[in-house]
Design a protein around this nucleic acid. Structure first.
Lengths: 140, 140
DNA sequence: TGAAATCCGACGAAATTAGTCGGATTTCAA
DNA sequence: TTGAAATCCGACTAATTTCGTCGGATTTCA
């Protein structure tokens, strides 16, 4: 179970934009500074824009900005935008993927785990990341 | 973020074996009954065996059995055996994957999330799946 | 000796991921 | 008016991973 680089790069970019909120649009040039391929990141920012998480200004002096306060943007929003919704097993979305009933214990386990992960993701906002840069341990 | 079919098939197989514990070795034939490609499952059971989760009996009347009581086998054991450890970002295992310090807030978030998912997985055992077939909702 | 079964490495097809490329468009300023 | 700075966008490719398949070797029992 792993995240693709899209999720990682996407969060890097969003965190950067959160840190620079109110300072005007940030160019791709700047956002990509830390080792993310520029043209690839450009694609990813397109996804974030279409998901309503960033707004853009075109033309000279243009760039990217977060579209909402950092407290209103969660990790779940970002991951969903970058990788689509979490789907541990296609059992969750495709009823006919197997001949097991909806009471199948395995299916229940996937559902519980999916809910749990989504909940964790929704709890972390860009704001909380800005406020706790030292990453104080959470009560797991 | 998704699980491969390996994880899914692996859990199906382990749950089947848990249901049939003490009834002697179960043949691949039987385990694969519900739509899992036989030869593929054979590979997967090899992984589970090498991880110490199932034991095998070769030859006529041979087959697969769980190697430990169902209460001692967690979802984490199974997922680890099938897909390797959860690694949301290579930041977790490869210090040099980027030039960010180990105090990088993004890194902290991945770590927290990884811990959380592992904890959830470790809490679910085959025994608990056998005991709660109706999958009563957990306190998320 | 033959049938039932696991074991195993190698191979291949399909899907996904991680980019790259070339241009189109927008905007501002000289 | 023109040129530079920037985003936008669809198509393409290379690499990797996933999902199997195949053919045979080995073990065991009747």
């Amino acid at each position: 179970m792993k995240l693709s680089t899209r999720g990682k790069y996407g969060l890097y970019a969003m965190f950067y934009l959160a840190q620079h909120q109110g300072k005007g649009p940030q160019s791709l040039q700047n956002i990509a500074a830390t080792g993310v391929p520029k043209q690839y990141l450009e694609q990813l920012l397109g996804n974030l824009r279409r998901a309503g998480l960033v707004s853009t200004v075109r033309g000279v002096q243009g760039g990217y900005q977060i579209a909402k306060p950092p407290g209103d943007i969660s990790l779940l929003d970002i991951i969903d935008a970058m990788e689509g919704p979490i789907e541990l097993s296609e059992c969750m979305t495709d009823e006919s993927c197997c001949d097991r009933s909806c009471a199948c214990p395995v299916r229940k386990v996937w559902q519980r785990l999916t809910d749990s992960i989504n909940h964790e993701l929704a709890c972390v906002t860009l704001q909380s990341m800005l406020e706790h840069p030292e990453g104080e341990a959470s009560g797991i």
